[in-house]
Design a protein around this nucleic acid. Structure first.
Lengths: 271, 271
DNA sequence: CAAATAGTGTCTCTAAGACAATATCAC
DNA sequence: GTGATATTGTCTTAGAGACACTATTTG
């Protein structure tokens, strides 16, 4: 009879066939656009970080940042490591989206990808600064269902426009996934990963939980509302928004003035 | 300059260090207990399938069914394959729960696990029949937070009682995970996986979506309610429950009689 | 003063919790 | 008839959408 110790000594995983494992991250940021007038509050845009691939496969195409899982780290740590390397910024949050393991999804071979949503603070990115010649760039995001039932994902940065088309796919058992109809020149199956990530982000923003991740420590309620509306792609009456979030925020006694209109009280997240 | 084709020809993933990948499944079933009287409707219990490990490591301890990912299948297909093998039943649904990749979680080496919740129909299990001497058995489940804030997971089958204790762990960024304080003699980190699976199951049952998976094609509203209450571990007034689910079900013109009280109309899932 | 946002109050509608009352069967 | 579940209806309360109205600042 073999003891557990003996068993483990003679056991080797190397004998078995096994895949390579990656983490890919959809890192989002809210950026405030310039004002239309000295009175008007700035508009917000939802931005997604993409990397221009330097090598094969999909050379010169845009892809999500990501990389291979290493020994002695969790898959979350791998995702964080990759996003730190690309942005030089500490992410505010990280949320799992799903696992992509369909055979053939990567031409290099048997590779399964773990997708995450990460939120990056605009302040932090501005401090680090963005290199316009860098391979890493922030794209503005639009994702909507059109009348024909298909989903259009539009990413744009300067002159570069990536337009993907996807269909909703009941993945066997009620869960919804996305099938790529037109990848819009995104590498691998990343168009589908981005669509899934946006869906997860919006679901998480429903209870304001993830919305705070996009905001600084102290914020006005209208800044809060603008961020929420940008993520969810909906609009709410300001009076009702205040009421709905009143349980999630705490007053401070500071105000934001100099905006061309009545100063607004700053709030902070409750508890 | 190398073309993509040339690149792929010379590329090999084998050079890199990579983990073994498994899918582990928390398969749930609702079982109706025997009646307390000829009038009383039977009570329900939530059951979880566990396998007694035949070999090292954790020999003779109970574990979730699962196995290694094979080439040419997705991780979902792997989960389905494992649960089919153990139950000889086609699962009704499959839902991802999370990835467990903490270094050291498996004494055999670098193994990351993908956890799924699966729902099995009681009818199907009864048709196949359960072998009492089999390594696979259905345990009744209780999972609650006690006053001290800790979570108690209790699994029982005939004389066997497994009692695990867990604490909630803010996993870095707002997501909650569970840390094992007492594994209750469950193999690996499976106590934490089960806790997470139950949390995911309850979240999915809030919108009745997963609840239908436990029900036959046609069901009475009180059967529906009993299943919902069993999963969520709460209770609702029958009058209010009918109103709440009225949008999700459709009347049929069949009734269930012979139950020792007024026959109930059978309903089916809407759309 | 004008333009913009900040902030309050109120009407309405809907959904959920509580509960009363009636209906119908098996024994 | 009795004991159980089936089914309907009503009262109340909480929360969200719509909207009117007032307050305050900067150019």
């Amino acid at each position: 009879m073999q003891t557990e110790k003996e068993f483990l000594k003679s056991y080797s995983l190397e004998k078995y066939d096994r895949p390579s494992v990656t983490a890919d991250v959809a890192a989002f940021m809210i950026s405030s656009q310039s004002r239309q007038s000295y009175r008007r509050d700035p508009e917000n845009k939802l931005m997604l970080l993409l990397i221009k691939r330097g090598g094969h496969p999909f050379k010169d195409m845009w892809a999500l940042p990501g990389g291979f899982l290493q020994r002695n780290e969790t898959i979350e740590q791998c995702a964080l490591r990759e996003i730190r390397e690309e942005t030089n910024v500490e992410p505010v949050s990280l949320m799992p989206v799903g696992v992509f393991s369909k055979p053939g999804r990567d031409p290099r071979g048997w590779i399964i990808s773990h997708a995450y949503v990460s939120v990056i603070s605009e302040e932090a990115v501005r401090q680090v600064g963005m290199d316009d010649a860098s391979d890493a760039q922030w794209f503005s995001v639009s994702f909507e269902q059109s009348e024909d039932g298909l989903y259009r994902l539009a990413l744009s940065y300067e002159g570069t426009e990536l337009d993907a088309v996807l269909s909703e796919e009941k993945s066997g058992f009620g869960r919804t996934a996305f099938r790529i109809i037109d990848s819009g020149s995104l590498a691998f199956d990343h168009a589908a990963i981005i669509a899934q990530a946006l869906t997860a982000l919006r679901a998480a923003a429903r209870d304001y939980d993830t919305v705070f991740d996009f905001l600084p420590e102290r914020f006005t309620l209208s800044a809060f509302q603008r961020v929420q509306e940008t993520i969810m792609n909906v609009s709410v009456l300001p009076a009702n928004f205040r009421r709905m979030v009143s349980g999630y925020v705490e007053e401070t006694d500071e105000f934001q003035s100099g905006e061309g209109h009545r100063p607004a009280r700053l709030y902070k997240r409750k508890k």
